[in-house]
Design a protein around this nucleic acid. Structure first.
Lengths: 215, 215
DNA sequence: TGTACATCAGTGAACGCGCGTTCACTGATGTAC
DNA sequence: TGTACATCAGTGAACGCGCGTTCACTGATGTAC
């Protein structure tokens, strides 16, 4: 805004060397996603948005895919933080899973284009192994919440199934919550947040138990 | 294959007038989706695949979107049929919802690119009103199955919520079932079909009840 | 049954566009002495 | 402290590409008389 560019943030007067173009490109990518959607997220558009020539990004990323992956990575990190907050804010132990689900969907709905990008990156590049090491990853939080809620950490297969089922559910809700066709019901229920809560609670795994007993 | 082109199917020798280019274009679109994915589905590619000039489709569709919508529409219709079959094949009344879910996911997994296209078409063009009139639509089948399973058709809001929750769930499972990261568990469970069944049954709404009674 | 003609459903060349990527370059930076 | 030079991080022009769409056209079809 003003020309008080400190040593770390030389915002003003744009010197020849940017200083932190790598980060700036990721930020520019997110701005484009938010403003114009995933279809507009070209490497050239990112460079343009960052105020830099179309060749400049190649000094920081091997190709377009690597740049997009960096954007997605940042998204996963932030999703982890959002979930941590949701988990911490749960009023009772029994509501932890539900709050995590709501936080997940809220993040996805607030950053729909970013979420789509994240999904695709995870889909064919299997990002989870990386995130498993991240203490703040969404996956980790769900694992801990399930155990807190009474799941048996020894039954590894059941644990994994529960985690995946939970993930599938929130993914589905996140992607469908905005459907035009649901508008009447969404409004009748008082907006998107209550609508999402109702859906998540309706589905079962978030609301009532952590182990399957399908008699 | 041979030149036995009847009046209705002049397959051989390609006369100047195609005869049924509209259908042929939709079929070509599906072939491209299956072979090369959604990114390859350009209007030019469809024309090429149908053996026709890039301008020809404009005699049958206003623009690219209209052509893609026609492909999606066909997909929705076939999904309805797949679900009808799943529903009919359910061994017990209690398993109807579950079988519908499995059929939905199977269709989506067998036609992943088509499913993505269908999702996007439904997402921002709200196709459901059209399908509601179609007796064979997925939506209709779920509605009837819920009632059969004991849902109260008078409680309109609860009915809709249950339908949407079910839809969210199968959408989520359909989109995540193929994730690379789930490969170990998927294999441990004996392949994709049992894995999907386990997920669907795990989630609750498909397995055990039709009305929510939280707590 | 034959002919004139409107209409339909194709062709193929061209348009302008934005894309990812490469290239030779150049200005800025930092290090060795 | 000053200078030579390697390296880093930009520029901007150019490449070839495939895209959606338009255009003037032409061959085939069907209808009126």
């Amino acid at each position: 805004m003003s020309e008080t560019g400190s040593a770390e943030t030389p915002t003003a007067a744009r010197p020849y060397h940017h200083g932190d173009l790598s980060r700036a490109l990721v930020a520019a990518g997110r701005r484009i996603l938010e403003a114009d959607g995933p279809a507009a997220l070209s490497l050239r558009a990112v460079a343009r948005e960052a105020g830099v020539s179309p060749a400049a990004p190649y000094h920081h990323f091997k190709d377009k895919v690597e740049l997009l992956d960096a954007v997605a990575e940042e998204g996963w990190h932030e999703l982890g933080e959002a979930i941590a907050k949701g988990r911490a804010a749960a009023p009772t132990p029994r509501s932890v899973m539900s709050e995590i689900g709501v936080a997940y969907v809220r993040f996805a709905r607030e950053n729909p284009a970013l979420y789509r990008l994240m999904y695709h990156a995870a889909c064919d590049r299997a990002m989870m192994p990386d995130h498993a090491k991240d203490d703040n990853s969404a996956w980790r939080h769900v694992e801990e919440a399930l155990i807190e809620a009474g799941a048996d950490p020894a039954d590894e297969q059941e644990m994994k199934l529960a985690q995946i089922a939970a993930w599938c559910t929130v993914h589905g809700v996140a992607e469908m919550a905005g459907f035009k066709e649901f508008e009447p019901l969404r409004e009748a229920m008082g907006g998107e947040e209550p609508f999402v809560r109702a859906l998540i609670n309706h589905v079962g795994i978030f609301a009532r138990r952590t182990r399957a007993h399908h008699d």
